[in-house]
């Protein structure tokens, strides 16, 4: 099928700019990037419908291939409204992050950093264990802070 260079280039630019923007830290720009990517995707779907044609309003004498393909159109219609909903949701997130943290910025996840830097030593697995030769340890010895067991528990 014929490839429309204009649509192709428009799509490429929208994708390129959209990707550039979502890689930014500013949440607003990320949102704009997403909108642009959606638009790019819509152009992509549209271009698969082929060359410009008649509006898909049924007429008895019109051959089916005279219309612009209605299937991509239906998909795009869905996509437009969904992207509206997604944009609205992102706006909510931006507003909330501004209210809570005065930040319009994607934050790094500190918890992930903490996980990456944790030592592999785990008292539960790696602490030296005293040999126990009875099950009937006195309760007070069990709970006193000096025993290795209690210390291991404290470190958890």
């Amino acid at each position: 099928m014929t490839v429309n260079l204009t649509l192709l280039v428009v799509m490429g630019v929208l994708f390129a700019v959209g990707v550039y923007l979502i890689l930014e830290r500013s949440l607003t720009r990320v949102m704009l990037g997403l909108i642009l990517i959606t638009n790019g995707a819509n152009v992509l779907i549209l271009s698969t419908g082929g060359a410009a044609g008649l509006a898909p309003l049924f007429g008895k004498d019109i051959p089916p291939d005279a219309y612009n393909d209605p299937l991509p159109q239906a998909l795009i219609l869905t996509s437009i409204v969904i992207s509206f909903a997604v944009t609205a949701f992102l706006l909510g997130i931006i507003y909330r992050s501004w209210i809570l943290g005065r930040q319009d910025e994607v934050q790094d996840d500190i918890e992930d950093r903490r996980v990456a830097n944790q030592p592999s030593f785990d008292a539960e697995d790696d602490a030296e264990m005293p040999a126990e030769t009875t099950e009937f340890i006195k309760a007070e010895a069990e709970e006193s802070p000096g025993t290795p067991t209690a210390r291991a528990k404290g470190e958890e």
Partner: peptide, 30 residues
């Protein structure tokens, strides 16, 4: 990365459209 992504999408779209062999399913839609 943005440029590469845009170009890749353009190439993919072109190839996808060139690969069409069957008539669209939507011909029956009207």
């Amino acid at each position: 990365l943005g440029l590469a992504f845009g170009l890749a999408m353009m190439g993919l779209a072109a190839v996808a459209m060139a690969s069409r062999t069957a008539p669209p399913v939507s011909l029956a839609f009207p």
